[in-house]
């Protein structure tokens, strides 16, 4: 059973003046349990539309999807999901603590378990001190942390995060990455959308690239990075102390190194030169 299974998902919006916009054109995608998948695409590619379909916020025109085997059309499919909306907003007349209690009850949590989990996530996300203040008074970063807290609260198996790092400062980004890596260690499935390639490179097992409502590539991150290797930068120090830097193709690498060693020069460093994830992404989306 897949954590997420998307089959031929399509969505057509009715625009103004009877024009229709095909936002999703038959997406097929499966995500394993325990896998972190980066959902990469430029703005307007259909990332949020896909996620909103999964969360029952909009209904797909064609196709189907399941979360842990449960059809997304039913509310039960969402019981084992933690969802963070893009630029989230939460009832701002509640305090963080009240909001988490509300969310926990919606997931059927009660009593001691709920209050214990509330305390844990509030402390984890450094919201313990201001937990009694109304969300209305929070900064943007704090609201995002409330969002993460409500995602983690019921310890679900599947995490669907829509642009979890957008608009965060470096500290916030680091926090999100740490959380995702922690979830990965604990064997959870994380599906997060982003348009920042660096995030994907650092935390994902696999990446799916979407553009104009179509999936372009789905592959493992290391495969993509490997495929992009263009050669190696080799730094060699001569006897007089001068440093020579050369870029050599993979086939010549062995020869260059042994030649240098034979000539009594020392090799300072060998670095693979490869196209970054960003270059790869730009190639796909056609810029």
């Amino acid at each position: 059973m897949y954590a997420l299974e998307i089959r031929g998902l399509g969505k057509t919006f009715r625009g103004k003046k009877l024009r229709t916009v095909e936002a999703l054109k038959g997406i097929d995608l499966c995500v394993e349990q325990g896998e972190v998948l980066g959902f990469l695409g430029p703005n307007g590619a259909g990332k949020s539309t896909t996620i909103k379909c999964l969360m029952g916020l909009i209904r797909p025109t064609v196709g189907s999807a399941t979360i842990l085997g449960r059809d997304i059309a039913s509310a039960e499919a969402r019981t084992s999901v933690g969802y963070l909306p893009e630029n989230p907003a939460f009832y701002d007349y509640l305090s963080a603590e009240e909001y988490l209690l509300f969310v926990g009850r919606a997931f059927g949590m009660q009593g001691d378990l709920l209050s214990r989990r509330c305390e844990e996530v509030l402390k984890q996300l450094e919201l313990w001190e201001p937990r009694r203040r109304l969300i209305r008074t929070y900064s943007k970063g704090m609201v995002q942390r409330v969002g993460l807290a409500q995602v983690l609260l019921h310890d679900p198996e599947v995490y669907i995060l829509d642009e979890p790092m957008s608009g965060l400062d470096p500290i916030g980004r680091a926090l999100v990455k740490e959380i995702v890596l922690d979830l990965k260690r604990r064997g959870k499935c994380v599906f997060f959308s982003t348009h920042i390639t660096d995030d994907v490179e650092k935390v994902c097992d696999r990446v799916a690239v979407i553009n104009h409502g179509e999936l372009k590539v789905v592959d493992r991150v290391e495969n993509i990075l490997m495929r992009g290797t263009e050669g190696y930068a080799v730094s060699i120090a001569a006897a007089d102390g001068s440093v020579e830097e050369r870029v050599v193709a993979e086939a010549q690498l062995q020869g260059v190194i042994s030649d240098a060693v034979a000539a009594g020069r020392s090799i300072l460093k060998v670095e693979p030169r490869r196209k970054s994830m960003e270059a790869f992404f730009l190639d796909i989306v056609g810029h």
């Binding site: 909103k52 916020l57 039960e76 499919a77 969402r78 969802y83 907003a89 409500q150």
Partner: peptide, 14 residues
């Protein structure tokens, strides 16, 4: 309007 609906309607509520 305030986009609370995303966070609320995505909970397992009918």
């Amino acid at each position: 309007e305030r986009r609370y609906s995303y966070s609320v309607l995505s909970l397992p509520l009918r």
